[in-house]
Design a protein around this nucleic acid. Sequence first.
DNA 1: CTAGTAATTGAACAGTGGTTAATAAAGAGG
DNA 2: CCTCTTTATTAACCACTGTTCAATTACTAG
Lengths: 190, 190
Amino acid sequence: MSARKAVDKELSREIIMSAARDLFVEKGYQHVSMRQIAAKLGYSHGAIYYHFTNKAELFFALVESHFSMLDQKLEEMMDADLPNTTKLKHIFIGYIEFGLTHQSHYEIMFLVKDKEVRNFMNEGPMKTYQTFASHISELSEKRLSIRDIWSIFMALHGFVTHYIGHVVGFEEVRQAAEHHAELLLLWTKK
Amino acid sequence: MSARKAVDKELSREIIMSAARDLFVEKGYQHVSMRQIAAKLGYSHGAIYYHFTNKAELFFALVESHFSMLDQKLEEMMDADLPNTTKLKHIFIGYIEFGLTHQSHYEIMFLVKDKEVRNFMNEGPMKTYQTFASHISELSEKRLSIRDIWSIFMALHGFVTHYIGHVVGFEEVRQAAEHHAELLLLWTKK
DNA sequence: CTAGTAATTGAACAGTGGTTAATAAAGAGG
DNA sequence: CCTCTTTATTAACCACTGTTCAATTACTAG
């Protein structure tokens, strides 16, 4: 019974987070156990508690990193050297891709109604939406009202929400997502 | 220790369903236990198993009743004597109104991801969506593809999903809903 | 009044979960 | 070589879960 692995095979927060991310995305927060994460890594569940104080801390560490991922993803798309219409479509599809690739995090960001959880992170969604909205406004051919942008967001949100839990990843719905994005572009045209 | 209540205080499927609905909506399917439902009713958990074979069947019974409510509402709108465009808009708004007026029902119908439950109910949503889709197709000025209709549905779903829990009733968002419906009409015009 | 049925109880079973703590082993420093 | 720290294992604890079932009672038909 070895009680410790060789140094080059030691556990780290990054390694745990990576395995945990896969499982959370696949099954959602509630359906992933510390034992499962440990099993996926070939470690015992107790080992994780050496690196994270509990399951919630592990999860929120992931969520934080993914919030900035979404912001970053939007920023990259803005910086690309492409026509505005193409950029817009990329943003629409990119949003959906993000939602379906990090389903469990998306749920926490936009679908969780539990008030205690909500208080844990109130600025994140707002900030992300504001930059999203201003980018859409900037790229649109037609001058959009606040409500127009809001409708676009809700249409995207509906797409993500519907497929969360029904689908493993983005690739399964790429075609439908592209079609959805194309329709949304209509709202931005004169 | 009474082992049976007086006849006029006996449990029934309806009474159980009503208590279960509240809890399912408040906490979600996985986080509601048979013991909690029983406790809310002042009965022991075993009693529920006399009326429902298991948790999934209880849940399924709830969902069925909600789908027929929505079906009926759609049918009423189709039967109205109005121009097609107006009917379409009414259906869009009516869908949102249904979702936000019966938030608990809507959540149970469309927001539950649990695999056990989904296997139990695959006809209800399908049938409702099929009639919804054929109505849209019939009323649309432009010939719509399956994907077009699907996008419309997801845009509506996104609207409802976002406001569920954040809003008490439909009236609070009527203006936004009408704007959303107006944008969706664009997709049905030549 | 009595036998039978319908409805309810509560214990028990077999899991699962997060978390903790004693224990053991690997590597580092002296 | 010996200690000290760091890391990992394992058993154990406790609070749950859905489900089953013998026992118990309330009512009802005869």
